[in-house]
């Protein structure tokens, strides 16, 4: 009951916030923009369902907006000192923490709905209907779990860091997660073996043209298809390979890349996708672990 009371107060604060409505406007505008962009690109590229292709493009935007909005929302309680009004009258720290997490996550769900509503309403007459509605729905649910994990992460930061710099820290964290996922994916794509181009010789012919000659170790010319293969120094071997794959499967930035790209490239050049159930488990686990850690720290934190 106490959490419901706190949520009621939080939601009132949230809907009165200009930042919240600015975010809503950005998400709605993003929906319109995406329809126009796909419509413009439809003759230049091949799409597996025009409308399907933009359903989840909001996620990158929300990945950056939500930490900014959420961290400022939580920080206002410290900045205005109003967290004291909650604790002094017997609301526990667990209740305050959980109500903040639920509030910022609810804002994320609301933004998702705003984008989807605008995108589908505007997109349907322009781009046609969804080709894979069931797949879109399951991916949407997975996205929502991903944002729960992200919300848990910045709720932890915004609860423990009481000054306004938390805004920058949370936005940098979001950027870092996205960038980190890209770097890890690029590393894991590197093939195990590569052609040894050490034996390639450039020869200038009598008529002045350049030609390429492939040699083996002994200096004998060989066919280009028989170029020897050597281990790629950039290849990530086990056990680091498994560790990095897991990091990307678990961290929200990696999950975002996995969902938006429908999987990740393996060294053989083929795409593999981590199953949704596995991603869902990781997202829920991360959200639970981070929240548990946040509660432990918050309970011990001295407030002013």
């Amino acid at each position: 009951m106490a959490v419901i009371n706190l949520l009621s107060a939080n939601f009132f604060s949230m809907i009165r916030s200009k930042r919240f409505w600015l975010g809503t406007f950005i998400m709605a505008a993003g929906g319109v923009y995406m329809v126009l962009d796909i419509n413009r690109m439809k003759d230049m590229a091949e799409f597996d369902g025009l409308l399907d292709s933009g359903v989840f493009q909001y996620a990158i935007l929300l990945f950056l907006i939500l930490p900014a909005l959420g961290s400022l929302f939580i920080n206002t309680d410290y900045n205005d000192g109003t967290i004291r009004n909650k604790l002094t009258v017997g609301r526990t720290r667990t209740q305050v923490y959980l109500s903040n997490l639920i509030t910022v996550y609810a804002a994320g769900v609301f933004y998702t709905l705003v984008y989807e509503a605008v995108y589908l309403l505007v997109g349907f007459p322009v781009l046609g209907s969804l080709r894979h509605p069931q797949a879109a729905l399951s991916k949407l649910l997975m996205m929502l779990l991903l944002f729960l994990a992200l919300s848990a992460l910045f709720t932890l930061l915004a609860t423990l860091i009481t000054n306004r710099s938390v805004l920058l820290i949370c936005v940098f964290m979001a950027f870092g997660l996205i960038l980190g996922a890209q770097i890890i994916n690029a590393k894991l794509e590197a093939p195990e073996m590569i052609e040894d181009y050490g034996g390639v010789t450039y020869i200038t012919t009598e008529d002045g043209n350049m030609t390429v000659q492939y040699m083996d170790k002994n200096g004998n010319p060989i066919d280009p298809e028989d170029i020897p293969r050597v281990p790629n120094p950039r290849y990530v071997a086990e056990p680091m390979r498994t560790v990095l794959r897991k990091v990307n499967d678990i961290q929200p930035g990696g999950q975002l890349a996995e969902l938006l790209e429908d999987g990740h490239l393996e060294p053989d050049g083929f795409k593999t996708a981590t199953p949704y159930w596995q991603l869902a488990l990781y997202a829920a686990g991360l959200a639970a672990a981070v929240t548990a850690g946040g509660l432990i720290f918050f309970r011990r934190k001295d407030l002013k």
């Binding site: 106490a2 009371n5 009621s8 009132f12 009165r16 009004n85 609301r91």
Partner: peptide
């Protein structure tokens, strides 16, 4: 310092506390 939401009116500050208290 007084613990009040600076961007809310006096009335809304009190309503907010009423909500917190249920």
């Amino acid at each position: 310092t007084p613990s009040i939401y600076l961007d809310m009116s006096a009335e809304n500050n009190l309503r907010q506390q009423c909500r917190i208290l249920g």
